[in-house]
Amino acid sequence: MHIESPTLKLLLASLTAFSLSQCGPKNEFAPPPPPPVTVSTPIVADQTVYVSFPATLAGVSEVEIRARVRGVLEQSFFEEGKKVEKGAKLFLIEQAPYQATLAASKADVDRANASLALAQANLGRLRRAGPRAVSELDIETAEAEVANAQAMVRQAEAKLDSAEIDLSYTDIQSPVSGRMSRRLVDLGNLVGNGEPTLLTRVVDEKSIRAYYDVPERIMLEYYRRRSEDKDISEHLNKVRLELADGTIYEHLGVIDFIDNKVNESTRTALVRSVFPNPEGELSSGLFARVGYPQEHKDAIMVPSVSVLKDIGGTYVWVVDEKNTVSRRGVTTGPTVQRQQADKNAVPVRDTIITAGLEASDKVIVSGLQRARDGATVTPKMATANQPAKPEQPAELQGK
């Protein structure tokens, strides 16, 4: 006889109820919530982006000072590396030989004038005597002697001018105002012996010229605007200069020369810009980057981290009103920097979108690894953006 205790009956009833509860509809697991992502609408603002090209700086005038006559270099009158004014005395070459040549040339002029006076007096006497006293041949001979004496005077005067010029070359003066280089020849050396010896250089740095090569793909924009008679002077007068340490020169420059031909070997055109240099902050020979402005009206910008690229092209993830993710192909422009509220924080890099995106689109800027085409997400709006500040875009830098 099997006797069930009350405790055993209660245990069996509890196990049966638990088993039935697990087999019912409540046995299904609840789906996870949509993954969270951070979205942001594009910033829309006017932007000026500078296309930059490596350049070499040169003074507006760079003059080599050379010895134009032969002689011993006797004196120097300037301080190396200091500024001089136009007409300032720089060197003195020994003058004694040229002073002697000048004196001899003056004597030759006097001798020629005396010979001319004698020939003219002789011709005058023959003419006064008349044809009965002298023959026509004598008169013609006297006239030829006068003409020859006049030629001798002109020749002597030309030699005198040459002697004066040679003597003036011994006193070397600065042809421009500028900053002096070092003395390349020590005093006491013979200079100008067979060739014009280089003595020093002077560079006029009141203005600085920047020479750089512009690729033909960028020159095409200039050629098109020129052919359409569009005014491009506004851009040509707003080029900027970025120095080797990354600082931007305070004065804007002007493009004053564009070569009339594209180099077939480098596929570039030589361009020159001029920048004022009143404080002497720039020097000839420096490396710099010249920035040419490109205007972007109502530019649409998104954080650069949200712009992705694969074999299918460049794209961003956008979220619609139903919180559904979709891939959106875009065309990108240059990159700019956006200063954060914390001035010590690293600026945010934004990319200008030239096609494929609207200002009202919600772009995923954080949680990109959770984005899938057609997936549902839980979007959270990012903090308010500030307008971007122009940055030199690497993809637009001149090569």
Rank of each mutant, 00 (worst) to 15 (best):
E79R: 11
L73P: 08
E74M: 13
L118C: 07
K86A: 11
S76T: 12
L116D: 06
Q99M: 03
K82E: 14
A103E: 07
A112K: 04
L90Q: 00
V60K: 05
Y98A: 00
E79A: 13
A112V: 06
Q99W: 01
Q75H: 10
V60L: 05
T101K: 15
A88H: 02
A96I: 05
P97V: 06
A100L: 15
G81I: 04
S61W: 08
I93E: 04
A103Q: 11
Q95E: 14
A67S: 08
A107D: 10
I93P: 07
A119E: 06
I93H: 03
V72S: 11
P97I: 05
R66K: 09
L90I: 03
A107Q: 10
E62I: 04
A100S: 14
N113L: 13
K89Q: 06
A88S: 07
D110N: 15
A88E: 04
A67L: 03
L90S: 00
R66N: 06
I93Y: 08
A112R: 07
V109K: 06
A67D: 02
E94F: 00
G71V: 06
E94R: 03
Q95A: 14
V109G: 03
F91Q: 03
K106Q: 15
G87I: 01
E79L: 10
D108A: 14
L92P: 02
S115F: 13
K89Y: 03
F78T: 01
K89C: 00
F78Y: 14
A103T: 07
V84T: 11
A67F: 04
F78W: 05
S61Y: 06
D110S: 15
R70A: 13
S115G: 14
E79G: 10
L116R: 11
A96E: 11
D110Y: 15
E94D: 03
N113S: 09
Y98P: 01
F78H: 01
Q95I: 08
S76C: 06
V109M: 03
K83A: 15
R111T: 12
F78E: 01
S105A: 15
A119W: 12
E79P: 02
L102Y: 10
D110C: 10
F91H: 04
L90D: 01
E74C: 12
Q75D: 08
E80C: 07
K86T: 13
E62V: 05
Y98G: 00
A103P: 02
K106R: 15
K86G: 07
V63I: 06
Y98H: 00
E94S: 02
A114H: 09
V60P: 00
A88L: 00
